[in-house]
Design a protein around this nucleic acid. Structure first.
Lengths: 169, 169
DNA sequence: CGTAAAAATTTTAAGCTTAAAATATTTCAG
DNA sequence: CTGAAATATTTTAAGCTTAAAATTTTTACG
């Protein structure tokens, strides 16, 4: 007759009540809102100030951390995006002389991608400004807040990873 | 000669040292990683289980909260996406009979969008499962963790909003 | 060696997303 | 009332993103 008020039969092992997880849902929405807000602001400033997209900036950031370059697959894994996505981004950045592709000496299927001198110079300049934007955006948090958030997000990441990979405990 | 070791001229009012904001930068990357991880999992489950995309689910969620419907502009604002984006999403959902568009009785420029009966039924079913996924993903957090995170993210959102709108304090 | 499975990458098709320009309508000052 | 500014929406062009299929090369088993 109705959905939630039924007194469950004694046979029922685990009560099948809706078990509302409102708190988790609200947390997820807030997390998403925060990230979307900040990401949008960074995206907008990158475009207006440096005429670059966030995915391109992210890709260059990965390469900047790997002086000897890395394969497309490695890039894909670190950026958490699909292989085909990286193919296109690398294509466009290469056309701008910001990075170069060289065949892997050990595997003819793979390519090694690395920043050009110009790419490195360009990225470093953008990164400096980017860091100051991040500082500005998080300026309302005290040092202790940041530490607490870091710890809680680490816990969140572990929890999410457990759900993403096998449900296995 | 070098970038950061120069002893600054006595005239220099505020030292222009890099003032590294490494902590904020790491926090931002962790926030982004968490959100990307969870969002990807939800996206994947929505596709596999209900053959629906996350943007469509989000749009339907907004409409479900507004029984009398809302305009495209209102939807755009609440979803934090562009107007043109909403136009396309609504187009595709309308083609599936999940929502309907009616001209606003008071403004001939605007349309009122609302879920159809089928759309509402479909959304409610998906939402129930979606909530259980979220609970699963955040299962590793204790109740206290959730409350702390909520509070810290509220603070983060306020800080970000201050940076997004006028720098004005 | 020969071949089947695995791995790295690209291609394809579809959909999402945005900024900017264009269109249509409303509001409001004079 | 009239025209200018504001508002709601759509269109356009470009780029991002994914999943799935296709291609090329490597690995490894027998």
């Amino acid at each position: 007759m109705n959905e939630r008020a039924v007194i469950l039969d004694a046979e029922t092992k685990v009560a099948e009540r809706p078990a509302d997880h409102e708190a988790e849902l609200r947390l997820w929405l807030r997390l998403l809102t925060c990230t979307t807000l900040i990401e949008g602001e960074i995206r907008s400033r990158l475009r207006d100030t440096f005429d670059v997209t966030l995915p391109r900036f992210d890709l260059m950031a990965q390469l900047d951390k790997a002086p000897t370059g890395m394969t497309l697959g490695e890039l894909s894994k670190r950026m958490m995006v699909s292989n085909g996505n990286v193919t296109g981004l690398v294509e466009r950045l290469a056309a701008l002389n910001l990075l170069e592709r060289k065949p892997s000496p050990t595997d003819r299927r793979a390519q090694i991608v690395s920043l050009t001198a110009e790419g490195r110079r360009t990225f470093r300049a953008m990164a400096r400004t980017h860091e100051s934007w991040i500082a500005e955006i998080f300026a309302g948090l005290a040092r202790g807040d940041i530490d607490q958030l870091m710890a809680l997000l680490a816990k969140t990441k572990m929890s999410a990873r457990a759900a993403v990979h096998g449900e296995a405990a």
